[in-house]
Design a protein around this nucleic acid. Structure first.
Length: 480
RNA sequence: CGGGGCGUGGCGCAGUCCGGUUAGCGCGCUUGCUUUGGGAGCAAGAGGUCGUAGGUUCGAAUCCUAUCGCCCCGACCA
């Protein structure tokens, strides 16, 4: 741990990320190419994220269920765009129990098909609608280039699948869940995101409309952090999800799906981390405060530990996720660096001097060095720490928002756009034509991230590429 | 699938061009003593089929052939 330091973000952002994921004990490579092992520290973070999302899902009327991992191959062929989109990345099971299967089974890359099949059995009347089901699980996509959390063959996520009696209602659901993701990203992960609609080129295979929340990483690349799709009747027709409406006529249902994955962990790392390591947003951090006791002699140790234990119990009772670092034989300095690598938001140092003065040293992870350190009274420490945690959340969000906003540009010409997207995003009028979108991608590697739902100027403009009339502005940037 | 790089103790590397017998170094690990308010010091230890298979040779980590795997850059994607 002492050697083999983390590269700085400026030196090599990609290496910084790879090393950090390993050194912070978040995940490890698996023996199978492209798969990852999520280690306990990373998984606890995910559990906290799950809790925040799951609460929001329940509040908006959804229930959880579980659908199988294996899906008949033929299901994938029922929706044309869907099969085209996913065919290249399917893993297929051909044998079971030593025998070749009559019909190959696909390891789910997403569950629209099998859930569509089940919904067609369950939905007969308008009284059965809406169906609002979410599933927590993992999916498998045979990715060519992988990176821990950001793109792995197998990843963990939730996928919500809903069916509605009208297009309006399904569209409302699509936007409602996008708002849920936005709220989660901002208020739990301290990640500012931009809500928007995907272009035709970028949308989900089989969707009528895809929406997204896009976040800017510190290397100014975009990361799609959550998606919510409106399917219209596409999947209902493919899987025969029909119901008798109030007029007693048979009608196809309107469906949606929405997902957010462990990729969001990557977003947290790349949004907040610094050259010392991770910086975890307090709301989801596995450990919110770490206690480091400092002593030399046995006599000092017993006095210090008495205070440290008391502080620990008080904060724990106050609902703060706290841990005591009582490892022997390690210097305090080592422990500081160790917990900084892991991104623990608050560190509480307690030494002989603090015992005398009735104080503790509080260090906040988001402000480096001495500036982030303060000496506070042991009395009412729980409320001091709670206050600091919430202050850290606010400051992380503010810092990330300012960074993002400073790197979104409004190029005046196409040439200008080309320069801008090399190191930032462009927010420009776009006519909606695929050719213009493709030209940008070809010239700059930047893609249309989304057409933002908010912050659009009044009135029309001219497409940054072709100069034709354009209704709306789109965001362009290089993406993960 | 194209282009580039790399496989040597747990990790990071040197040695390979120009073969020579005990394969080194740093970190980590184990034990002991001293340490401990920003990555501790000393001492003694443990740990390696040099990716794999074949070949050349008195002798191969080193040369030849084949093969496998990984990483980076491109084409596809949450």
């Amino acid at each position: 741990m002492a050697e083999d330091k983390l590269p700085t973000r400026a030196e090599d952002f990609s290496e910084w990320y790879n090393k950090l994921v390993l050194k912070a004990d978040m995940a490890d490579y698996s023996p199978v190419r492209g798969c990852m092992v999520v280690k306990p520290y990373g998984w606890t973070l995910w559990e906290n994220m799950q809790a925040g999302l799951d609460r929001r899902f329940k509040e908006t009327g959804h229930v959880n269920a579980a659908f199988p991992t294996l899906i008949p191959m033929s299901f994938f062929e029922k929706e044309k765009e869907h099969v085209e989109g996913f065919a290249p990345e399917l893993a297929v099971v051909t044998h079971g129990g030593g025998e070749e299967l009559e019909e190959p089974l696909v390891v789910r890359p997403t569950s629209e098909t099998i859930i569509g099949y089940m919904y067609s059995k369950w939905i007969k009347s308008w009284r059965d609608l809406p169906v609002l089901i979410n599933q927590w699980g993992s999916v498998l996509r045979w990715e060519l280039r992988t990176k821990l959390f950001l793109r792995t063959a197998e990843f963990y996520w939730q996928e919500g699948h809903t069916a509605h009696a009208s297009a309006e209602e399904a569209q409302e659901e699509t936007y409602r869940m996008l708002d849920v993701y936005t709220d989660f990203a901002i208020n739990d992960c301290a990640i500012p995101v931009i809500k928007g609609v995907k272009t035709e080129t970028e949308k989900f295979a089989g969707a009528v409309m895809s929406t997204t929340i896009e976040a800017m990483m510190q290397d100014k690349k975009a990361l799609q952090s959550g998606t919510s799709h409106y399917f219209g009747q596409n999947f209902a027709k493919a899987f025969d999800i029909q119901f008798l409406n109030r007029e007693n006529t048979l009608e196809y249902a309107y469906t949606t799906s929405w997902g957010l994955s462990t990729r969001m962990i990557g977003a947290i790392i790349m949004t907040h981390g610094d050259d010392q390591g991770l910086i975890l947003p307090p709301k989801v951090a596995p450990i919110q405060a770490i206690v480091v006791p400092i002593y030399k002699t046995d006599e000092e140790k017993s006095k210090v530990m008495e205070v440290a234990d008391k502080v620990f119990s008080e904060l724990k009772a106050a609902g703060i996720r706290i841990k005591m670092d009582d490892r022997e034989g390690l210097t305090p300095g080592f422990k500081y660096n160790d917990w900084e690598m892991r991104g623990v938001p608050v560190r509480i140092e307690i030494g002989p001097k603090d015992v005398e003065k009735g104080s503790v040293a509080l260090a906040r992870r988001d402000v480096a060095g001495r500036e982030g350190k303060s000496f506070v009274s042991q009395t009412a420490l729980a409320s001091t720490v709670s206050g600091l945690l919430s202050e850290i959340h606010d400051s992380l969000l503010k810092r990330a928002t300012e960074f993002r906003d400073a790197n979104i540009h409004d190029p005046k010409s196409y040439n200008d756009l080309k320069k801008v997207v090399a190191d930032g995003w462009a927010f420009s009028y776009w006519c909606g034509n695929k050719a213009c979108e493709a030209k940008i991608k070809e010239d700059t590697k930047a893609t249309a991230r989304c057409i933002p739902l908010e912050g659009q100027p009044e009135g029309k403009g001219k497409c940054i590429v072709c100069g034709n009339e354009a209704e709306k502005k789109a965001l362009f940037g290089r993406a993960y």
